[in-house]
Simulated scan of single mutants.
Amino acid sequence: MAKRPDTLETLRLSLELLHRIPRRGTVTANELRLQLREAGFEREPRTIQRLLQTLTEFSGIECNNSSKPYRYCWKEGARSFSMQGLSPQESLLLTLAEQQLGSLLPARLMKSMNNFFSQARSQLGDKGTPQREREWLDKVRVVSTSQPLLPPKINPEVFEQVSNALYGDQWLEVDYQNAEGNRKTSKVMPLGLAQQGPRMYLVCRFDGYDNERCLALHRFISAKASTLTFERPKDFNLKQFDDDGRFGYGDGTKIRLSFRIEKGAGLHIVECPLSTNQQVVELEDAYEITATVVESDMLDW
C-alpha cells in the first residue's frame, strides 16, 4: 500500500504526457516538461525522460533519436490517446475557445492545450458525434462592424515572448518601430494585451515612467522576456484603461454630448446606447440624443 501514491502519481503524469504528444509533428522532452509545468506539474527533466522511455516501449509512441534533443510523436497508424469523458458539447466549447480566444491566451498555455484542442476538433469530426454539434461551427460567426481588414502579421516569437512576460510579470526588452518609422530599443513593463479589430496592442509602462503606452504588436522587430520580475502596479486596471477611452485615443475626459440624427441612420444608437445615461427624444423624422461619453479621437471619427 505504501507504493500506491507513487504509482497513482506516475499514472497521472503518464496520462498528461499522452495527452500532449502530437500525432502530427513532434515534441521534445523539455517542451513537454514546460507544458506540464504550466499545467501545475513541476517535474525534473530526468523524470520526464524515464516516463517517455517507458511509453515508447509499451504504447504507440515513438522516439526519433537520430539527433539531440530526441523528439517524440505517435506512430503512424497508432490509435492516439483520447480524452475520456469529453462530451460533444465540451468539444464544441473547446473548439470555439481556440478560434476566438487563441490570440488572448498565453502562448505557453496554448502550446500546453494544443493536443486537447486537436482532440476536440477530431471528436467534432467523428461521425459518432451528434450532427447538431458537428454543424454548429458552420452556423455561427463573429462579424466586423466596419470594413473587414486582414490582421497585420505578428512575429510568432514576438507574441510568445510578449505573452510569456505578461503572464509572468516579467520585464520585456523590445525593439520597436513606431508608425512614423522611428526605431527604439526599450525596457517595458507589460500590463495588458488588447485586440482592437484586426490589431493587437500591448499596454505597458516604459522603464522609469509611470504612465501607460499602447504598442502595436505588428510593429515589434523583436522582444525578449527578462528573468527579472516586477510588482504589478496597484493603480493600473485594464478595464478602467479601456473605459477611459484610451484605446480610442482619449485621456479619460468625459463630455456631455447632444446631437440630432435622422431616424434611419440613428436607430442603431437607440438600440445600442452610447452610455448608461443616454436619453432619447423621438422627433417626427429624427432622434435627439444626449449622453455622457469619453472625449476621444475615435468619437470624432
Rank of each mutant, 00 (worst) to 15 (best):
C272V: 00
K239S: 12
K224C: 14
C272L: 03
F259K: 03
E262C: 02
L283E: 15
E282T: 15
Q278A: 08
E284L: 07
K224V: 11
G264Y: 00
G250N: 02
P273A: 01
H268T: 05
R213P: 02
R256G: 04
A286N: 07
L257P: 01
V294N: 06
I269W: 10
E262K: 13
Y201V: 09
A291L: 07
F236K: 10
E284H: 09
A291M: 08
I269D: 00
V293F: 00
A225Y: 05
S275G: 05
F259I: 11
T253L: 08
V281P: 00
Q278T: 10
F259T: 09
L215M: 14
D235F: 05
T253H: 07
K224A: 15
E231H: 09
A216S: 15
T227W: 00
F206K: 13
D242K: 08
Q279H: 12
G266H: 02
V203M: 05
G250T: 02
A216M: 08
R219A: 08
E212S: 14
V203R: 04
I221P: 00
A223Y: 08
A265R: 11
Y209E: 14
D243K: 13
I261T: 10
R256K: 14
N211P: 00
Q279L: 10
N277K: 04
Y287I: 08
E212D: 12
V281Q: 14
D243L: 13
R205Y: 02
D285R: 13
F220S: 05
I221Q: 14
D244C: 10
G250K: 02
T276C: 05
L274V: 06
D251K: 07
